[in-house]
């Protein structure tokens, strides 16, 4: 090899640097855009209020969404799940959806938070129609995990009530 013709082994990764810079700018740009264009409040799901007594009287399982306006994962779930037409259709068709916002300090909201022992946000709780045990999903790990949780909660077998014992002799008393 002639002196001076050697290629430097420490070449600056120009293409990679430019690509990283462009992607970083795009990341900041889309982040700002997303922050300025939040999804419509409530997404596409028809939410009920916590004190909506009719919610439990439709024979459908009830989906409680415990969330807050200040909670970033809740906003992501809002954008990716509740504002998605497919997911919203699945929820509206199979569940009675009740939103319990952290800002809601009504007695009904407080009672629901206490009953389901909510200590982290977001939390989804599915209360089956009837007497089944509620199922819950804490945190947000992507749309896929929420969808499979909602499907599993629907597929879960409803516990059957044991037959009432014969009340023989009751009439005799």
């Amino acid at each position: 090899m002639r002196p001076g013709s050697a290629v430097s082994t420490r070449g600056r990764p120009t293409v990679l640097l430019v690509l990283a810079a462009v992607l970083l700018i795009a990341r900041v740009g889309t982040g700002i855009y997303d922050a300025r264009h939040p999804p419509p409040l409530g997404g596409l799901v028809k939410w009920r209020a916590p004190d909506d007594a009719a919610a439990t009287a439709e024979g459908k399982p009830v989906l409680y969404d415990f969330s807050a306006a200040w909670c970033e994962p809740c906003k992501r779930m809002e954008r990716e799940v509740f504002a998605n037409p497919e997911s919203a259709a699945l929820i509206d068709a199979s569940y009675v959806a009740v939103r319990v916002a952290d800002e809601d300090q009504s007695a009904a909201a407080k009672a629901l938070r206490a009953r389901h022992r909510v200590d982290s946000l977001p939390t989804l709780v599915v209360q089956p129609a009837g007497e089944g045990e509620p199922r819950r999903l804490e945190g947000y790990a992507g749309r896929g995990s929420v969808r499979s949780f909602l499907k599993r909660a629907l597929e879960a077998k409803q516990p059957t009530m044991p037959p009432l014992p014969e009340l023989e002799g009751r009439d005799k008393n």
């Binding site: 990764p13 640097l17 990283a20 992607l23 795009a26 990341r27 889309t30």
Partner: peptide, 21 residues
């Protein structure tokens, strides 16, 4: 979700850039 796409690829390229440097 373009923010997710750009976040992912910018993290990967940034880490590789810093590693090379």
């Amino acid at each position: 979700a373009w923010f997710r796409v750009f976040s992912y690829f910018s993290t990967v390229t940034l880490c590789l850039c810093l590693a090379v440097l």
